[in-house]
Design a protein around this nucleic acid. Structure first.
Lengths: 161, 161
DNA sequence: TATTGTTATACTCTATAACTATA
DNA sequence: TATAGTTATAGAGTATAACAATA
């Protein structure tokens, strides 16, 4: 299978949520939700910068990792992890399949479902992306010391539950 | 000005990023970026639930607060705060103007620019939304103690810088 | 020349709803 | 009846590019 000519990757969000000097942010400065969003956008932009030229966005990276760690997972379960509808999981899986990164195999126990599997190429992709993303994440977290980092992770997980 | 018939609000994201039992999340569990995204989606959904029936999304709430605290701000500056292009700030301002929440007045010093101002109605809206959003934010943060909350806020702001 | 606002247009992501094949 | 996957369609949000008025 010849790899498709890849359209240049364009993230939806190109611009940071700027801290404009001299502006009054009012109640926003007290809200966890606002701080969360700003930090998340900054991380997203850093992800994009660190993986420039690759078409793997954060949700796509998540999908690759999940399929890699859970071979045979169904499209519906993948959709649940990503927080998207079944139809979206379809489109996503098609996208990976067209690029030879994921293969669908009939689930042995349920003939309605597909089991998703990384191809050899998908394995290589997830390994190389993981290296880049872990390095980026550590770099971003470098403003925190180890203890702060662990604490942040734990507080975020509490909040997400 | 008669208030427009408001289309029912439908957030882009309806579903949480589920923690699916028995699944291996691999490297994702070590990534600040992933935890950040999950916490942010959870907060977004809580925002939606707490303001059900209102068409004010998080970015719109941000816009109202910023215009309220900085009367006369330009569309371009507002776009920078939100991290969107000028054209998007236009569409957004049109949306508020059509609902009588924001008024455009010519900037006295620069005849190219508009100064944005809350209308009386906009003021009421931002006050009522602020009450709801602050209450929601506190509720969400209730899993943390006061010290943890302050720490999280400070760590997030470090990360967003 | 550079910037503000504007308009037209296109693209990405995701939802809903209806359908099929299996369970 | 319920669920997995599929298809078609629609909508929200935002980008780019070109333009007019003003700086």
């Amino acid at each position: 299978m010849t790899p498709k000519p890849t359209a240049p990757y364009r993230p939806r969000t190109l611009a940071p949520m700027q801290r404009v000097a001299g502006l009054d942010y009012g109640v926003l400065d007290e809200l966890l939700g606002y701080a969360l969003r700003r930090a998340q956008v900054a991380m997203f932009l850093a992800f994009h910068a660190a993986t420039r030229g690759q078409d793997i966005t954060p949700p796509r990276f998540t999908a690759l990792v999940i399929v890699g760690a859970n071979p045979g997972i169904s499209q519906t379960a993948l959709g649940n992890v990503l927080g998207i509808a079944r139809s979206g999981a379809m489109v996503l899986t098609d996208w990976f399949q067209a690029r030879g990164l994921i293969a669908r195999r009939r689930a042995p126990d349920d003939r309605r479902a597909w089991g998703l599997h990384l191809t050899a190429r998908g394995e290589r992709m997830v390994r190389s992306m993981t290296r880049k993303v872990v390095a980026l994440d550590r770099r971003r977290a470098a403003v925190l010391n180890g203890e702060e980092r662990r604490q942040l992770l734990s507080l975020l997980n509490k909040l997400a539950a």
